[in-house]
Design a protein around this nucleic acid. Structure first.
Lengths: 187, 187
DNA sequence: AATTAATGTTTACAAAGTAAACATTTTCCT
DNA sequence: AGGAAAATGTTTACTTTGTAAACATTAATT
């Protein structure tokens, strides 16, 4: 065991990611992260300014994952939407950090803000391709509606996971995301 | 100043509500709440079990407000949706507690869970009235889509508030909620 | 009036974020 | 190579916050 680690920052982010994925951000605390990375409580602060910066790292990592799987879905609305929804259901607590409203002041992290905008711009571009003659306003309206429908759906599906599945019809939606999206928003 | 207060619980919830509305739940801490209510740090614990219960009280209060304004909007989709959206924009941090996904385990508070279900059932009922011949599945699909579109929109509009208003077209949506809703989901 | 329940206060502790001072490596410059 | 400077870890220590426990006072009940 050496005094200097190779990639402690990566290691710390990795550990925090795992805790957050398995248990939620509330359960991420610096001392536990340090212990799991086998360093002292405050080694962290040589690599990141504070806990909020750690949160930002998780958000960045989330966008990396979601973007990686995105490929050329811009012209395949329902596939694009389903991709986001599946991410939200697979990494609910990371998703909260990325798209929830409470916490992180995203404007403090311009690169992350750019990732967010990039995602939304993808939708706008897709809508533009789909309705090339629409006005900017109508494009925006459609894009916002798509975005809202997708992200709003994650909330319902997650809640239905918690409540001992009150309704089978929600299960149908969950298992048929693309079809649901085509029937509703994506047309 | 008497030893026993009349309605300390109400007072404490009120104080917490004000802090949460003005600054976010993160800024609500027991000592500050106690100070503003002019009681000792721990008087609180004679009235509520813990801080989570305080959060639940705010959620309950949020539902009371949102339900009060709801009236007979069940058969007026865009009005109903706009009502929720306006609440979300007026009380963003309360809204997070009510409809966000991170925090409160709502199933620990069956009465709150019931308030939530009541709201969603209102949508289902509205859809049923609107399309009386639709199958249960189709009703559910439409209701979920309405719910998701409304709650998802709050997220975008809130974010656009933060970012020094990147786009005027979002402003249009915000100022014309009903029309936007009619154009998209509510038809 | 005396006992008990309800409600406040004081004291105290533990968890968690992080600053400061100190220690060890590594890097880099001559 | 040798030694200063930068980077990275550790130890200590302080602060904030939630809340438990013991004690005090007022209100309710018999």
């Amino acid at each position: 065991m050496s005094y200097h680690k190779k990639n402690l920052k990566e290691k710390l982010v990795e550990v925090a990611w795992n805790i957050c994925v398995a248990e939620s951000w509330e359960k991420v605390n610096m001392r536990e992260v340090a212990k799991k990375a086998r360093v002292s409580n405050t080694a962290f602060y040589r690599h990141l300014k504070n806990k909020n910066d750690l949160k930002a790292e998780l958000v960045r990592r989330g966008f990396e994952i979601i973007n990686k799987g995105k490929k050329n879905l811009t012209n395949n609305f329902s596939g694009y939407g389903a991709h986001y929804i599946r991410f939200g259901l697979k990494y609910p607590y990371i998703y909260d950090l990325m798209f929830g409203n409470t916490d992180l002041d995203i404007s403090l992290y311009p690169d992350i803000e750019a990732l967010f905008d990039e995602a939304f711009d993808g939708v706008i571009q897709g809508v533009k391709n789909f309705m090339p003659n629409a006005s900017d306003k109508d494009v925006m309206i459609k894009a916002v509606n798509i975005w809202a429908s997708v992200h709003g759906l994650v909330g319902i599906l997650r809640r239905s996971d918690l409540q001992a599945n009150k309704d089978k019809r929600l299960k149908w939606i969950k298992n048929n995301l693309e079809e649901y999206l085509k029937m509703t928003t994506f047309k």
